[in-house]
Design a protein around this nucleic acid. Structure first.
Length: 494
DNA sequence: ATACATACC
DNA sequence: CACTGGTATGTAT
């Protein structure tokens, strides 16, 4: 009613309109109020950093410059050694499918191609998982609540998720990836990271860009889906580049050092994987907007930021994935904030949002449900847990967690519940007058299991080898009881 | 070890 | 009125 929908999302004025609609819709909601509290906390953090910055001396900066110079030298040395067997630099590719879930539905039912459509988010408090590109022109995004999306676009079609369908499509795409790199890695259904070096060695007639064009064409021919890709000297740069010409495009980042520095130097800091909205805001407060700003202000940033963040910034501002050439030093040393895909699973969790309630009986029943779901997942993953974390969210969206490490290892729903129920009772008791709660969940970590996923040696003690895949979970409690002493001695998993 | 915060899909 | 769920990891205490 406010705007011509044909023009929505196509220009600055429409962007302002979209922001206004979102603001008007969310203003005054509990979610919005919680966002404001979080912004206030970030503002506090910035104020503390500025106070700290005011006390930074010349000699602090000089010392930081020394350290940085050494780190830079070490990083460059490590990067120079990152070549294939023949001494050629590696050609890394990051590829991800455009609006994957939505596109899968469009392939099956082409009528969705021309209308605004999104997937997921059914039910009262749902949020959308993906929107097609028609819907995106209205400002609709993944993670947007359905009711706000409908304010932006009343005619939006919202489809149910169909993971079986997505898995089939993803499997087809993976056969294409595997032709280009049989060892490709996927962090999710819709993306992959490939090392194209061996393929290119076998196809000297192809440039990297031509090979990737062909790979994307094959994906399209075999699935009807479009993909975007980035080509670069390392996975981080390739991932950033894959976003640059989306949808259905690709970008090659130069492979020479100066070209790489020019590319990262021009990037807004928010584009670096690991820098999210909060860190972006913090850096912005210090005038750090781009990769070049990071590099230029490195000595100053070094003196005020935490070790993992400053080391991460140093690496990425050089166009190198974080963690390159870490000093011999500390065992728990840094890696990228926000994580990077290629690590084994360290925890499993289950949580659920519900209509806010203060009823303890309801919360207990919900907790039992989550424990049952988690127990199933643990069993399917053939692991046991040593640490349990209880999570609960107030109606106000404030989140509380309580965690406890057990002796021995647990997996059955009953055992999980026995460990976490006291946390629920304690939290509820601490809140007087009674509080309304909107979500609750359980997370299991400190996992130990069978050999799958590179679990530790505790594995063989913890689970009878080949002996528990019969689906008979009835006696888990007994087996846990027998097992715990032996397992306990093994301790110390990474 | 525990609680909370940030990030990514 | 109304804003997910799963996983990883960093920071502070």
């Amino acid at each position: 009613m406010l705007i011509n929908p044909l023009k929505a999302g196509t220009g600055g004025a429409d962007r302002a309109h979209i922001e206004a609609v979102i603001y008007e819709a969310s203003k005054g909601t509990r979610f919005f109020e919680e966002q404001k509290r979080r912004h206030a906390r970030t503002a506090d953090r910035i104020a503390r950093l500025k106070a700290h910055a005011a006390r930074v001396t010349r000699s602090d900066l000089a010392e930081a410059e020394q350290t940085i110079a050494h780190r830079r030298a070490a990083i460059e040395a490590a990067v120079l050694s990152d070549v294939d067997a023949d001494g050629r630099p590696r050609v890394m590719v990051h590829c991800d499918l455009d609006a994957f879930y939505a596109s899968v539905h469009e392939v099956d039912e082409p009528q969705w191609r021309t209308v605004p459509m999104a997937v997921g988010g059914t039910g009262g408090d749902g949020v959308l998982t993906t929107a097609n590109y028609v819907a995106r022109r209205f400002g609709i995004r993944s993670a947007m609540p359905t009711w706000i999306a409908r304010k932006l676009c009343p005619q939006l079609a919202v489809l149910d998720l169909d993971f079986a369908k997505y898995r089939v499509a993803a499997a087809k795409v993976r056969t294409v990836f595997s032709r280009y790199d049989p060892r490709f890695r996927s962090a999710s259904l819709d993306e992959a990271s490939l090392d194209l070096t061996p393929y290119l060695a076998e196809h000297p007639e192809l440039t990297p860009a031509q090979a990737v064009e062909a790979m994307r064409a094959a994906i399209h021919a075999e699935t009807g889906l479009t993909a975007s890709a980035g080509i670069a000297a390392n996975t981080m740069l390739a991932k950033i580049a894959s976003d640059a010409n989306k949808p259905n495009g690709q970008l090659l980042v130069p492979f020479d050092r100066l070209g790489i520095l020019a590319f990262v130097g021009a990037l807004p800091v928010r584009k670096f994987p690991g820098i999210g909205a909060v860190t972006d805001h913090v850096l912005d407060a210090f005038g750090v907007l781009t990769g070049a700003d990071i590099a230029a202000q490195m000595p100053f940033l070094w003196t005020i930021l935490t070790p993992a963040l400053r080391d991460y910034l140093l690496c990425v501002s050089m166009g190198v994935p974080s963690g390159a050439a870490l000093p011999p030093a500390p065992p728990g040393a840094s890696s990228t904030p926000g994580g990077d895909a290629a690590t084994r699973r360290s925890g499993i969790s289950s949580e659920r949002t519900f209509k806010s309630t203060a009823s303890l009986a309801f919360l207990q029943a919900m907790l039992r449900d989550q424990c049952a779901t988690l127990a199933d997942d643990l069993r399917r993953s053939r692991v046991f847990a040593r640490t349990l974390t209880f999570k609960i969210k107030k109606e106000s969206f404030a989140v509380l967690t309580r965690s406890r490490s057990t002796n021995g290892y647990v997996r059955t729903a009953g055992e999980l519940y026995r460990h976490v129920e006291p946390m629920l009772l304690a939290v509820v008791r601490e809140h007087r007058p009674p509080t309304q709660w909107r979500l609750l969940g359980v997370r299991a970590s400190g996992l130990v299991g069978e050999n799958a996923d590179g679990m530790t040696a505790g594995v063989r003690v913890g689970v009878r080898v080949g002996g528990n895949d019969g689906g008979n979970d009835r006696d888990d409690a007994t087996r846990d009881g027998r097992r715990s002493d032996a397992v306990r001695r093994r301790g110390g998993h990474p």
